[in-house]
């Protein structure tokens, strides 16, 4: 564990809490892409199946369980409890365009052709693009609530911090995983446009509004 990974994980945790809290407090999931949340639930489920086979640490186990539970809770709030507030007319990204390539790529480019390993690889590829339905929704409506912007910023920062963690691990432990690194860079790049808007608008007290 190094400081970049710890802050990255905490940022990830913070993002999940911000989102759950926002939906719960406002009793509404307006502006939130259910499809992105569904993809995240698939990501955590397929990646953390190793909970059943290997024990890393109490921290590792707890965080995995929290991520899985929170992603299911978020989907439950969006698709069942606060279904009436779900803005599905604006959540029109075709997720099969992300799911199918992630499956094919995981079958073609992986470290080992074994079920758990392929599922892990699939989850890494899918995570890198899972936010696209949410970003698509923001661009379609042309705006996002501040709290949704904070959520996106915390979630985007997490993988960016992981890049620093991978650089650190490569330098200090001679450890690296190209699949995670390339996917993590792609994931972070997808947020760049949003980061720019967040820093120039939201942090200055303005609403995140895209030019018409």
């Amino acid at each position: 564990m190094n400081i970049f990974r710890l802050i990255g994980d905490l940022s990830h945790l913070l993002a999940i809490i911000i989102l759950l809290r926002k939906i719960w407090k406002s009793r509404s999931c307006a502006g939130i892409s259910g499809k992105s949340q569904l993809l995240f639930a698939i990501v955590y489920t397929s990646r953390y199946l190793d909970l059943l086979t290997v024990y890393v640490s109490m921290y590792n186990t707890l965080m995995k369980l929290v991520f899985i539970a929170a992603s299911y809770a978020t989907c439950y709030l969006i698709y069942l409890k606060f279904k009436a507030t779900y803005d599905h007319n604006h959540d029109t990204f075709r997720i099969e365009f992300l799911l199918v390539p992630a499956v094919i790529l995981a079958l073609l480019i992986n470290h080992d052709f074994m079920a758990l390993e392929i599922l892990w690889t699939f989850s890494i590829y899918l995570e890198s693009v899972a936010i696209l339905p949410q970003l698509f929704m923001v661009s379609k409506t042309g705006e996002a609530e501040s709290i949704t912007s904070h959520y996106l910023f915390a979630l985007g920062s997490y993988r960016g911090l992981y890049i620093l963690n991978w650089i650190y691990r490569y330098a200090m432990e001679d450890h690296y995983d190209l699949i995670a690194i390339v996917a993590g860079v792609v994931q972070t790049v997808l947020y760049c446009d949003f980061f720019y808007l967040y820093i120039t608008k939201v942090l200055r007290g303005k609403k995140l509004q895209l030019p018409a």
Partner: peptide, 10 residues
């Protein structure tokens, strides 16, 4: 090995 190594990340 690399398999167990990367599983410590989330």
């Amino acid at each position: 090995g690399k398999y167990s190594n990367k599983k410590d990340e989330l």
